[in-house]
Design a protein around this nucleic acid. Structure first.
Lengths: 150, 150
DNA sequence: ATTTTTTTGTTGCATTTACAACAATATTAT
DNA sequence: ATAATATTGTTGTAAATGCAACAAAAAAAT
């Protein structure tokens, strides 16, 4: 049953590749769409949480967001109470890009689920959700430098 | 239901991240494990097919395999009939690494599926398999330069 | 209160990733 | 048989990715 993880990997890489190709049209470089959609949907989120949400290294997120700021899709705002954090918001340009990102995602989704019934899609979602919950604990464990035994 | 694809992305990135950290112990750099396991399991496979299997750009696969060859995990052999292709095989060193790769994968799998019944795991696998089939067609379409309409 | 630890953010560096563009063989169409 | 196309492999270049190491603020422990 190790093949479950391989299927997940194949699907994820293929989808990511498709998105990266398609979003060049918006002048988004590799991976940037991941951050932009989530900032649009979670205004005020901080970079650290965004990295955790996406499951990507903190420093990778930091640089992707820097680029998005430079290219004007996103802006960072200082928090009033906490001098350390910077809250992220989509700019007008970012908001304009969002519908396209959403539409592409919805389309890929419909293609991915073609031939599955409504109920099967539901089942898949719930099972994946549980798997994700399991794996994110593991990810945080290993990311923090802990060693797994097997 | 777009969230299905996001769950897949999160799971895949987290797992990949874990594997990359753990396989540094074997002196495998980022991503190399993907190629090495598959070459071990499919001796004689050519690079082009391997890239398709993994769902990664041809040139990315080319360089990853180059590195694996230099570090002695893999060797390329000329085909007798076809002068163009090079068949890939794991070396002794590669074969020795394989059990560790396998064990890590199995362990991640068991963690991922924790709390799911045997039947639920089966269901998940079959649904993912169908999704993968759907998406790989789309990937090849877009990779070849075709434009999707949505 | 003050020390220790955690959280958040950044930069230097080495590496992978992937698009473009090219070359050579193989396959298919005429 | 020859021409056109597809397959397979490579290299140049630009960019993302992620580890290590640092800094500063915040939170927790003493």
């Amino acid at each position: 049953m190790t093949d479950i993880l391989r299927e997940v990997g194949m699907i994820a890489r293929a989808l990511d590749s498709i998105s990266n190709i398609e979003f060049k049209e918006l002048d988004l470089t590799k991976g940037q769409y991941l951050y932009l959609v989530r900032i649009c949907e979670n205004p005020g989120i901080i970079q650290e949480k965004l990295a955790e949400m996406i499951k990507v290294d903190r420093t990778t997120a930091a640089r992707a967001i820097q680029k998005l700021e430079i290219s004007g899709f996103v802006e960072k705002k200082d928090d009033e109470k906490n001098k350390k954090i910077k809250r992220l918001f989509s700019t007008e340009k970012g908001k304009q890009a969002y519908p396209f990102l959403k539409r592409e995602g919805d389309y890929s989704n419909s293609v991915a689920l073609a031939g599955l019934s409504e109920e099967e899609s539901e089942t898949l979602f719930h099972l994946l959700h549980r798997v994700r919950k399991n794996i994110e604990i593991e990810w945080e464990f290993v990311k923090k430098g802990n060693k797994r035994d097997y």
